[in-house]
Structure formats: structure tokens, C-alpha cells
Simulated assay, not measured.
Amino acid sequence: MRILHRTEYRYDRLVSLNPHRLMLRPRDGHDLWVDDALLTIRPRAELRWSFDTFGNSIAVATFADATDSLLIESELFLRRYVTDFSFKPDGAHICPFPFDYTDEERRDLHPYLGLQFPEDADILDQWLEANFVDRPGGAFHFLHSLSDSIHRSLTYSSRDEMGTQTAAETIFRGLGTCRDFAFLFMEASRRFGFAARFVTGYLNDLNAGRDGAADAEGPVGGGATHAWADVFVPGEGWIEFDPTNRITAGGELVRVATTRTPSQASPVSGSYVGAGAVFLGLTVSVDVSEAERLP
């Protein structure tokens, strides 16, 4: 598939751009192969690549020229492969719930286990008691049911403002974006002893209905970056859950980066300097198409 992610900032006069941090290139794995990755930036920028503490590919762009706009265009050609966890036969490899991580797993997973906002624990527990009623015995099906409960009980609503609501804020408001749903799922999973992390990437709505469990009317979150969560299940590894669309480990989810918190997963971040300059706006578009990189 081909993914074109275009971000454009506009200013009312010339400004000097401070270094910008870009999190736009996925890492290859057995489930995601990157055939090619192209990055176009105007004005011209010097790039320095590195890995962050989570192993994500990070590019820092530095600029020499003043400008009244900034265009960042990421073009990816990749292949996505999916593991179907739903139809595995019962057996010793199936993780029960409740469960225990091994001592070694717990040491490795420690940063992903505790609530990011411990003060939300009581509110979260009350909401789970009222809304998360169906609790199957297997860990995978338990988490799948939790994702369904969030999807069913809350209303999706897009929001232009940056940032992610806390679990308590999403519960009180009864609505949220994909980032809010993903974070609520993470905090709820952690409340039951699971290690969970935040995932940012894209929604391949061309695959709607082919795998996973997106709603019949089609998934929401396309046309921009998307967010969901990973949970570590013993014997199965990290499994993706998208409560916004009721997708579990589906080909619709195209991972770019994983982090401990939502705030660490911004695709583009940076600032500018300009006396009296006014930021006029930001335009973001994501286009997914069934195209392959030609040799």
C-alpha cells in the first residue's frame, strides 16, 4: 500500500523555524515491511536520524532559511501482515485471565504497568464496574471485550485541539477522539494488571471489513493520523486493540511508533521565532491507496 501524509503550517510573515522532531517512519518487522520511505520538506532542511528510548525512528530537521510556510510530506510504500488471534484453538499457549507475568517480563514491562494518572483509579473502577460487564476468562477475549465496552459506551468525536484527555475526562464527557479512546483502554488494561502502550500510525480504511472487526458503516479516523493501543499478553506478545473502531490486530492498523504515553507520540513537533508573527493554521491530510513501489 501507499500512504501519503502531508502536513502544512502557514504564518502571516517570514519566520525562523526552530528544529522540528519528526516521527513518521515505521520500523520493519515480521508484520510490517517498509519497501520505501520518502520525505519531502520545504523549505529545505538538514536531517539527523536517531532512535528514541522506545526504538522508534526519529528525524530532527533543522532549517537555514526564513519562510512563511512549512510543508512536510511523508510517502510510504509498505506491506502489512496480520496474525489472527481470534480463531486459535484452545491449548496451553492460550493465556488465561487472571494471569501473572514472569519476574523477567515484569521487570521489562514495568514502565507500561502503572496508571499514568493514579488519581483516576476510583473513577475508572466505577466506570468499569458499570460498563464492562462481560469479562471472559481468556486474556485475549477479556481485552477484546474491554475494547468493545469502550466503543459501545462512548461516542467518537473529532477534535482539532492538540492533546489527549485523561481517562476521567473521557468518562465524564462521554466522548473522545481515537487518542482519548486508546488512552482510556490503556489505563483500564493497566488497572487489570496488563502492560499497555500507546500506538500512533494510520488507518488503512481500504481494508475495512476484510479482517479485524470494524463496524459495518466503516471505520472512523481515516484522513489523518490514527491512534490505538498495544497490550502485552503472555505467550502471544504485543497485541493491537483499537476501541475506536472495534479492530483487534487488524490489517487496517498501520503502526508508525509506540510510546509509553500519548504525549510522546506526536508525528511532528517544533516551534518558530518571528517578531509579531501570527500562526495562520495547520492542514493535515493522509491518503491511503492500493499502490506498490515500482522497481
Rank of each mutant, 00 (worst) to 15 (best):
H5W: 03
E8L: 10
E8R: 15
Y11E: 08
V15Y: 09
S16E: 14
R21K: 13
M23E: 06
R27G: 10
G29H: 12
H30V: 10
D35K: 13
L39Y: 03
R42T: 14
A45V: 11
E46Q: 09
S50G: 08
S50I: 00
T53I: 12
F54N: 11
G55R: 03
G55C: 06
N56A: 14
S57A: 15
S57I: 15
I58W: 04
A61I: 04
T62S: 15
T62Q: 10
A66Y: 03
T67C: 12
S69I: 07
L70H: 12
L70C: 00
L70G: 05
E73W: 03
E73F: 05
S74R: 15
L76H: 06
F77M: 08
R79F: 09
V82R: 12
T83K: 15
T83D: 14
D84Y: 01
F87K: 14
P89A: 03
D90T: 10
G91C: 09
H93W: 10
F99Q: 13
Y101V: 08
T102N: 13
E104R: 09
P111V: 10
G114L: 12
Q116I: 12
F117Y: 15
P118G: 01
E119S: 13
A121Y: 02
A121E: 13
D122Q: 14
D125E: 14
L128N: 01
V133P: 01
V133C: 01
D134R: 13
P136M: 07
P136E: 09
P136Q: 02
G137D: 10
H144P: 00
S145C: 06
L146W: 03
S147F: 01
D148W: 11
H151E: 08
L154Q: 01
D160N: 05
D160T: 11
E161W: 00
M162Q: 14
Q165A: 11
Q165T: 06
T166S: 11
A167M: 05
T170D: 04
G176P: 04
T177C: 03
R179I: 02
F181W: 07
F181L: 08
A182K: 05
A182N: 00
F183K: 09
F185I: 07
A188R: 06
S189L: 07
F192R: 13
A196Q: 02
F198I: 11
Y202G: 07
Y202C: 04
N204W: 07
N207Y: 09
N207P: 05
N207G: 11
A208T: 06
A208V: 07
G209E: 04
G209P: 04
R210M: 13
P219A: 11
P219Q: 04
G221F: 04
T225E: 09
T225L: 03
A229D: 01
G235A: 08
E240Q: 15
D242Q: 06
A249P: 00
G250Y: 00
G251E: 03
R255C: 08
A257C: 11
A257M: 05
A257K: 01
A257N: 06
T259M: 10
R260N: 08
T261P: 00
P262G: 01
Q264N: 08
A265P: 10
S266W: 04
S266T: 09
P267R: 09
V268K: 01
S271N: 05
Y272P: 03
V273L: 13
G274E: 07
G276V: 06
G276T: 07
V288K: 11
L294H: 14
